Computed example of a mutant assay.
Amino acid sequence: MCLILLAWQTHPDYPLAVCANRDEFHARPTLAADFWSDQPGILAGRDLQAGGTWLGIDRRRRFAAVTNYRDPKAPEGQRSRGDLTRDYLAGDLSPQDFLSGLDGGAYGGFNLFLADRDSLCYYSNRQGRIQELPPGIYGLSNHLLETPWPKLVAAKARFSEALQALPETEPLFRLLADPTRWPDEHLPDTGVSLEWERMLSAIFVQSPAYGTRASTVLTVDRQGEVCLTERSFNAAGPSGEVQRRFQAD
């Protein structure tokens, strides 16, 4: 997952609203978002290579999403980052308790959002500090929370506007579908080649081998109704759409 925009307790009708793009190699096998057969309380996409997920929610309104921290020189961890979101959603701990017991050194660099009905937390093992976030609108890519990369700054501004159209979600999906790349002088230097910095500067990433694999819009309303819509993509273009609604326990 390379872009997450999240509104927490700021919208009059939706205490949680999320739109996100997951960027990954097209060859990595994936299942589209659905309730898991082995964990029927979890609604999420699934990484078939390691078994975890990049974004999901459970029937109790507990939400989790992860991005990697881009540092090509850092060693890979012993465990997949997708285990973080899976393990939280499969358990019963609060965000604070889950993060307090976490061995962040077992994973490659990551950023993690965890929420329940009452709180939203952010944690990165490149920072090592649990942050309980106040109501607000947040943006996260592949560096620390609110790092002002050009695509994140632009996407966050558009997200704030698109929230006003809810329950209409097309403005959010239009935001996520923007393939515009930024000029070289605005690009961060994250240790990858200039060609990759250019490609990754877009909100919607496109290349033959790597790109945006899923665009997700998730809302939870004041009555506890959850709606998750996911649009999937492969190297050739759109490959499917799913929508799941349920009333949280």
Rank of each mutant, 00 (worst) to 15 (best):
F35C: 12
A64T: 03
A248S: 13
F110E: 06
N234D: 05
L187T: 05
T53E: 04
L93D: 12
G128D: 11
S239M: 11
A236W: 05
K151N: 06
W196F: 13
F35L: 06
R126E: 12
H143D: 14
S124T: 00
Y69L: 12
R198W: 03
Y88L: 15
P29W: 07
V205F: 10
N125L: 01
T30W: 03
T216H: 00
L166G: 04
V18G: 01
D178H: 01
Y123S: 12
R126Y: 00
V226H: 00
G52D: 03
R231S: 02
S141T: 06
N68Q: 04
S141K: 12
Y107D: 10
G240Y: 05
A64Q: 03
R61Y: 01
F246N: 08
L172W: 10
G41C: 06
D189R: 13
N21V: 11
T180I: 14
R198Q: 11
G139R: 01
V153K: 01
R245L: 07
R28L: 07
G211E: 05
Q206N: 01
G51A: 15
N125A: 07
R198G: 11
Q247D: 08
A106K: 04
T212N: 07
S207W: 10
A236E: 11
L112D: 02
R62S: 02
L55A: 14
L228A: 06
A90S: 12
S193M: 11
D87I: 04
D178L: 09
S119A: 15
G104D: 04
P15A: 04
R245N: 06
L16F: 13
F159W: 14
G91T: 11
T229I: 07
G211V: 04
Q49N: 05
G91W: 13
T30F: 09
L55K: 08
P75A: 05
A64V: 12
A20N: 01
L175T: 02
H143C: 13
S239I: 01
R231Y: 00
R62H: 14
S124I: 08
R181I: 13
L194K: 02
L152P: 08
E195R: 10
T169H: 09
G45V: 05
Y138M: 07
L187K: 15
W54N: 08
L145Q: 09
C19A: 15
S124F: 09
L3Y: 00
A17S: 14
Q206D: 06
V220P: 02
D92V: 15
W149D: 09
D189W: 00
F204P: 07
W8S: 03
L55F: 11
G101F: 11
R244D: 07
V153H: 02
